[in-house]
Computed example of a mutant assay.
Amino acid sequence: MRAKVLGALGEPLPMHRIAEKLNSERSNVTGIIDRLEARGLVERRSDARDRQVKNIVAAPAGAVLARNFRRSLGFAAEPLAALGPDDRVQLRDLLRRMVDAEA
């Protein structure tokens, strides 16, 4: 889940948007952000338009980790290339069901 959060941080996001992107509870995301922040992988920053909102931003170390993680998933690109768009959607949905069943 921490890798998913880091991967979702292409731009500064408030925690509620991260929770929406990951289909997760806000309280769960808060705990994940706390752990990532403690490791120096993300930072909380006040929003320029609304000082009460805290945006989550990948720290330099977190951005490098997320980039390396994405690169490490390259092994799946070739087998997935043989699947058409509909098959990829079906595979994604099946994998989500598997992950959700484990949670």
Rank of each mutant, 00 (worst) to 15 (best):
M1S: 02
M1Y: 02
R2M: 10
A3Y: 09
A3Q: 09
V5R: 01
L6E: 08
G7V: 04
A8F: 06
L9G: 02
L9T: 03
G10H: 07
G10L: 07
E11K: 06
E11A: 03
E11C: 00
P12A: 03
P12R: 01
P14T: 04
M15W: 03
H16R: 12
A19E: 02
A19F: 00
E20C: 03
L22G: 03
L22W: 02
L22V: 02
N23R: 11
S24V: 00
N28M: 04
N28T: 04
V29P: 00
V29K: 05
I32E: 13
R35Y: 05
A38E: 08
A38R: 12
R39Q: 09
R39C: 05
G40D: 06
L41D: 07
L41V: 09
V42S: 04
V42R: 00
V42E: 01
E43Y: 04
D47N: 14
D47R: 07
D47H: 12
R49D: 12
R49Q: 14
D50R: 08
R51C: 10
R51M: 13
R51H: 12
R51W: 12
V53A: 10
V53S: 11
V53G: 11
N55M: 07
P60V: 02
P60M: 02
G62K: 06
G62I: 11
A63P: 00
V64M: 01
A66C: 09
A66Y: 05
R67I: 12
N68R: 14
N68D: 10
R70L: 10
S72I: 14
G74E: 15
G74M: 13
F75L: 08
A76E: 01
E78S: 06
L80W: 15
L83C: 00
G84W: 06
P85K: 09
D86A: 05
D87P: 01
V89D: 10
L91Q: 12
L95K: 08
L95E: 06
M98K: 15
V99F: 15
E102K: 14
